[in-house]
Design a binder for these strands. Structure first.
Length: 294
DNA sequence: ACCACTACCTGAAGGC
DNA sequence: TGCCTTCAGGTAGTGG
């Protein structure tokens, strides 16, 4: 899934299709993804207008307006395998998964479509998610009181994420820096791939205790994180197989990764003869160069 | 508070 | 070919 750059790519791809559109009808096929959808999800969404689509961390956030012109937010998280696909399907009404089949690739088989929104221009938006780790919510109150958004940390590409913030978060923490960076309360939007890539770029071992990061390494890590994310956004996401751009087209991040999923392969740094290692930290794979990363 | 581990799901890939 | 195991981008909840 979609880590921050992939969600940003989805957001940019969908925004021009969705913004300004009214939802003619919301069809819910699977009411429970990772969590149960709000009971009034279809009711709230049907007839509402999508004003603006944005991203916060790995969440998509739609600024909505209902028929009485009251505002609310539609929040969604793609989990590991969630995918939105926009279909330029004119003139059809009702939920008929077979109609979407021609623009959904094999990986997101039609049987895994859990939600379809018919828009007022005749187009449709579907949400497919084989593993059902994704989730959605309707937010009527202030965003910062929402259970998913209340506790999350700053955006890694924003000003509030900086060396001072990172060092403060590392203070007295015994967990490896790898685990700390995956903690969405510290900084929100990084996932397993880009943490590995950022640590490689900064020359920091994923095994290093957060408390021992130090100012010099923090000063390398913050820009490394930003650079890795910026480049991935520029490349339009990553090439992971369960993920596609919002228009259904595959393909992203064609230059690939320096360490992620490269166990046993040579380190890509000039002059380094070591091979990329794979270790398991808190149940998740970490890839790194034992020579370049300390 | 912190930290590691488990649960939640399906599908792809590799070994035999 | 088929069966079995392992692994996968996520987060929330648990128990030590």
């Amino acid at each position: 899934m979609p880590e921050l750059p992939e969600v940003e790519t989805v957001c940019r791809g969908l925004a021009p299709k969705l913004e300004g559109r009214r939802i003619a009808k919301a069809h819910v096929k699977t009411a429970k993804l990772r969590f149960a959808l709000p009971r009034d999800f279809s009711e709230k969404m049907t007839g509402a207008r999508i004003m603006r689509l944005t991203r916060r961390a790995k969440y998509l956030l739609a600024d909505m307006r209902d028929r009485q012109d009251n505002g609310f937010y539609w929040l969604s998280h793609l989990g590991m395998t969630g995918r939105f696909t926009w279909h330029e399907t004119k003139g059809a009404t009702g939920f008929d998964p077979t109609r979407y089949a021609h623009d959904i690739s094999n990986e997101a088989a039609v049987r895994h479509i859990h939600l379809a929104l018919e828009l007022d221009d005749g187009s449709h938006l579907t949400y497919a998610d084989p593993r059902r780790f994704g989730f959605m919510d309707i937010i009527d109150a202030a965003l910062d009181t929402n259970r998913f958004l209340a506790q999350i940390g700053p955006e890694p590409l924003g000003n509030r994420f900086n060396e001072a913030h990172l060092l403060a978060a590392c203070e007295n923490r015994q967990t490896p820096i790898k685990n700390l960076l995956l903690d969405q309360h510290i900084v929100a939007g990084l996932g397993n791939i880009y943490v590995c890539e950022a640590l490689f770029r900064a020359g920091i071992s994923p095994r290093r205790k957060a408390a021992n990061l130090g100012a010099k390494r923090a000063a390398r890590l913050v820009p490394a994180i930003r650079a890795v994310l910026d480049e991935a956004i520029a490349a339009g996401g990553s090439t992971l197989r369960d993920f596609a751009a919002s228009d259904g087209a595959l393909g992203y991040f064609q230059h690939g990764f320096a360490v992620y999923d490269r166990a046993g392969k040579p380190c890509s740094r000039d002059g380094c003869n070591a091979n990329v290692a794979r270790i398991v930290q808190s149940g998740r794979s970490s890839f790194y160069c034992p020579t370049c990363q300390r």
